[in-house]
Design a protein around this nucleic acid. Structure first.
Lengths: 140, 140
DNA sequence: AAAAAGTTTGTAATGATTACAAAAAAATTG
DNA sequence: CAATTTTTTTGTAATCATTACAAACTTTTT
């Protein structure tokens, strides 16, 4: 997606498409590594030395509120962000620390939902060992 | 469960059953409200004025490591703990802030798991409005 | 009883996030 | 287009949960 398209998208969601917000969104869009706010900041401050940490936080919050970015619920220290807001699960490898996406069957997830509740968000994650770490250290 | 049984249980899991650890475990066992460390501390310090915050953290970590307590992954500020380590999901109500349990079908959850990964832990939660808050404010 | 190991406590440090106010930028108004 | 208002950014300071650490204490082992 081009920056122009991103600007349009932000505008549609009621966010003024500032350089900073587009940069944050672009980073998340291009790096599907579920980075933390600090990771985003460190990456962006290279290109834009004037960017502040607070703006990264502000932008992330604005993007989450606008529904363009999702905040992950994981048992990690910091919060992680994802530009992929479609239904999918996350796997957190306890050995390498990586967070991988995996697909979720929509109808299967529907069947998990508790009755009587109005579901607006969901977080489905598993943790353990990713395939690479399993073969690297098979016994554990 | 009696404190005696808890002491035995901790012992079986390789934890010395100290007064503090039993108190923390007992609180979680009796209060299925998914409290934070601070909440546990505030409750316990009433009865045991000498208890320290650090000990509550230490005890929680020890209990989690021993598999007697589970740390929840939610999109909240602090970490929440649960003495129920059996498979179940959590619902976080965005209006009242409450966290409710709901049952999960084991085989359904199995079918969600990604292939090739060794799954050691899982967190399944939904957020939105609980039934009480839905009827209290139906339009939203 | 002495030594060793494990646990608790209080305080200090850390680290992520938020609060806040001034400066800057953009949008609106006349 | 200039003046005013609104929004956003920036930098610093504050906050809040959690962790680090070392001394004191308790329990276990010898």
């Amino acid at each position: 997606m081009t920056q122009k398209d991103m600007a349009t998208l932000l505008g549609e969601r009621g966010l003024r498409p500032t350089v900073q917000r587009i940069a944050v969104y672009e980073y998340l869009y291009d790096h599907r590594t579920h980075p933390s706010a600090e990771t985003v900041y460190q990456a962006l401050v290279q290109q834009h030395p004037t960017f502040s940490r607070t703006t990264v936080y502000n932008s992330l919050h604005a993007l989450v509120k606008a529904g363009l970015v999702k905040e992950l619920a994981m048992d990690t220290e910091e919060r992680h962000y994802d530009a992929d807001v479609a239904l999918h699960g996350h796997f957190h490898c306890r050995r390498c620390g990586g967070i991988a996406d995996f697909t979720l069957d929509e109808s299967l997830v529907q069947r998990l939902m508790p009755d009587g509740y109005l579901v607006e968000g969901q977080g489905i994650y598993f943790s353990g060992r990713c395939p690479a770490c399993r073969s690297a250290e098979p016994t554990n």
